[in-house]
Design a protein around this nucleic acid. Structure first.
Lengths: 196, 196, 196, 196
DNA sequence: ACGTAAGCGAGACGGTACGTCGCGTCTTACC
DNA sequence: GGTAAGACGCGACGTACCGTCTCGCTTACGT
């Protein structure tokens, strides 16, 4: 399990990849909660005991898979493009490269706590974006508390993403980014700034 | 066998109530996904086979419990107060009477599909509210599609509700309704109406 | 449950008769061991809880049914005709009147211990017959012990009876009685009397 | 996965043996019909689910156990010693090596159909013995049909065996074989041959 | 290139929960 | 008072998955 200069045994890499692919496939078909380790290994054509050599359980598999996808994401997109509009588009393009994966972790197919886990990570990114854009947020007792606003906006963001991925004929990243910004700019200006 | 039609056997009502209470308790403690029928019946001090005489499985129990709560809700609140501000407050007050129940079905503790089920129902209510308030919505190709907005706003609404219920020292329904309206009024005006 | 001058409640008699008939029918169809109280009551169109008002369980029902048949038997045939050949024929004729009942208690369809119970009772009769016919039996260390001989002969007798009842085209009681006597006369003379 | 073809996993052999032993023990104590899979596995100190990996149910376990005993029997005794007197004694000696087993399958403790199953197998052996000894059997309408005689004699044989095994101070195989032959020789000569 | 340590397939095993079924007891209403 | 209807606690059933564990085979790696 330890990497000697980053290169692992070919068989290990093959097995892990097969299992991760199978995970996504089976999750798309019957949902994460309903799926068993057997389902995954049957699909991956890997022995069940081999699964346990690499992962603790299906949650661990998903966890590790998420992390690996994230590493790619961060390498390629960075901290969501430092709040630039182009950064958002890059992010969407990146997401479009693993549509099944994101559909799985975002949609109702995923187990609640895992989708929650993903949402929290994404929230940090999304909020970082807004915090960069509107750093001057102040707290006003008459206005909604900041964490209510954050939670609300982040959840809205994830739902929007999920909506985008579920479309049969998805709009382009550019188009969707445009809509997103309209939605959230409005929310942002109306909630982050003190009432005028 | 029916007694004065509609009034059920006392034992039956007792059993069902014990099971529903136990469900909520155990779900709060360890989450809906992780919980077994045995957990529920142990807590309710009801025999496991009695559980199956009333419900198909834990999902069915939750489903029926949700429906019963909803019936109460509709009787008492009606269609969310016909969009009146007081209607929203009534709704929140009603929700406050079953805090554990709503915490369960709204939070990550619930199974994804059930929380989804709840959200969809709640969405219809929330959206009905806004549609009454802003009936003049138009479709503009440059603006986000209506269903994207609906999904986004509804999801935000549910998250806000969840946030409210998770607070240790919850604000009053009046206070929270005020914040909600600020949040959503802003979103509504900025997304449902054509850009000015 | 107590009889006032031998006359019982009509409903009680009806219920008991329905249950006894149903018992025999269902036993013929699926065997005594495999059959449930529900099977019996369903067939008898009697409520299951009514069954328990009359019998402890299916064993009790069979037991009581056997006893009632036996009472009839003894009234009509007496102690197997006092060893007369005509007595055996009377017995067989009596048995022929309840073919399903005797098939059930004699054949492999019956639970072992009950068929055993029946066999023991029948054995007493059969052996009484031979003891009357050959009262001069003596014990000879070189010859089989008496109880071995009794068990063996009685078991053979029951098997023969079972064979007779299972035949599709049964021979007449007279014919069968003739065969029986040939079989057992030979056994009897060769085992009950000291070797000549 | 086969190791030297035919030799099974050590654990498998151990488990099966424990279960078979437990089956006999528990059957002796409370009878086959009354006994549950749990009883067996508790006694064998084997997990209940392991039981089902090897056997369909308790009937299957008994069935397979019987077959294995029979294989041993046939290897060691062959077709009941080709009708020789010594063959019968060999058979009895073999039976004496598994007294509990034979007590179980022969006595009323066994479920009717299984004891029946055993009797039929034994009958074939016993009858083969007599058919070899008295091959000149003829059919005479005045005499009992052959299959009636066979059934009768075989049943008597099994009962005799059961009697032998139930004795507290069993006679020797030689003594019992002698008695058996007396019993059955007499029956045989008097029923298989035409009346003189 | 090749010997060897690893990864792997196969599957036994002890657990635990499942959903079903039958049991025997009971309560209540009907007749 | 007998019966129908049926709730209930109890406990066995046979199935499914879980995570752990051996045990040989095979295969990629490192020298």
């Amino acid at each position: 399990m330890q990497k000697l200069d980053g290169v692992e045994d070919l068989r290990v890499r093959r097995t892990r990849k097969l299992l991760q692919q199978a995970l996504i496939e089976v999750t798309v078909e019957k949902g994460f909660a309903a799926l068993t380790v057997r389902d995954i290994t049957r699909r991956a054509m890997v022995n069940r005991s081999t699964f346990y050599r690499h992962y603790l359980d299906k949650y661990d598999l998903l966890e590790q898979h998420i992390n690996e996808i994230y590493e790619v994401l961060e390498e390629e997109v960075g901290i969501i493009g430092e709040g630039r509009h182009e950064g958002l588009i890059e992010l969407l393009k990146q997401i479009q490269q693993f549509p099944d994966f994101y559909r799985v972790v975002l949609s109702a197919k995923a187990d609640a706590f895992l989708s929650q886990r993903f949402r929290q990570q994404t929230q940090q990114r999304v909020l970082a974006y807004f915090q960069q854009t509107f750093p001057e947020a102040v707290s006003d007792p008459d206005r909604p508390p900041l964490d209510l606003k954050f939670t609300t906006v982040a959840s809205a963001g994830c739902s929007a993403l999920a909506w985008w991925l579920e479309q049969e004929q998805p709009s382009t990243p550019e188009q969707f980014a445009h809509w997103l910004q309209q939605l959230f700019y409005d929310i942002a200006v109306s909630t982050l700034k003190p009432k005028t």
